[in-house]
């Protein structure tokens, strides 16, 4: 990532209105949004095809949990931010320590978390 090339954020969110807000916030902050993707299968496919620096992942995609994608991204050492309404105790053990932002969230909060994950050089 360079100054000329904006930071690319991979967005997975099945709720269009929420995705819309995330998109707005990220774009306003100068990020490039990849997505948003609304189902597990499309988002996994896209994550393999697209180039991105960080990912925001909604946990529940129309009843399907996003965990397989989380595992894959963790393996690829892609920084990620979980966006969810679930309490931490509802998460599988291994994901409880991951960066997480509870819905509903404030746009500035989202941006600061993304920034902390992908520090600008």
């Amino acid at each position: 990532m360079t100054a000329l090339e904006p930071c690319r954020v991979f967005v997975v969110e099945d709720e269009f209105l929420v995705a819309l807000q995330i998109e707005d916030d990220l774009i306003a902050a100068g990020y490039l949004v990849v997505g948003p993707f609304t189902s597990l299968s499309t988002s996994i496919k896209a994550s393999r095809a697209e180039r991105f620096d960080v990912a925001t992942l909604d946990l529940n995609l129309r009843g399907e949990f996003v965990y397989p994608l989380v595992d894959e991204l963790l393996e690829r050492r892609v920084p990620l931010l979980l966006l969810t309404g679930y309490a931490v105790s509802d998460l599988p053990e291994r994901f409880r320590s991951l960066p997480r932002l509870t819905k509903p969230f404030d746009g500035t909060e989202l941006i600061s978390r993304i920034k902390s994950l992908v520090p600008v050089a």
Partner: peptide
């Protein structure tokens, strides 16, 4: 029950997120 609670939490918060988005729009 845990699922329901989680689901409820998820939905409520999702809904709030939606409401937040609706408000902004």
């Amino acid at each position: 029950r845990n699922l329901l609670v989680a689901e409820l939490s998820h939905r409520v918060k999702n809904t709030l997120a939606i409401v937040s988005s609706i408000a902004r729009q």
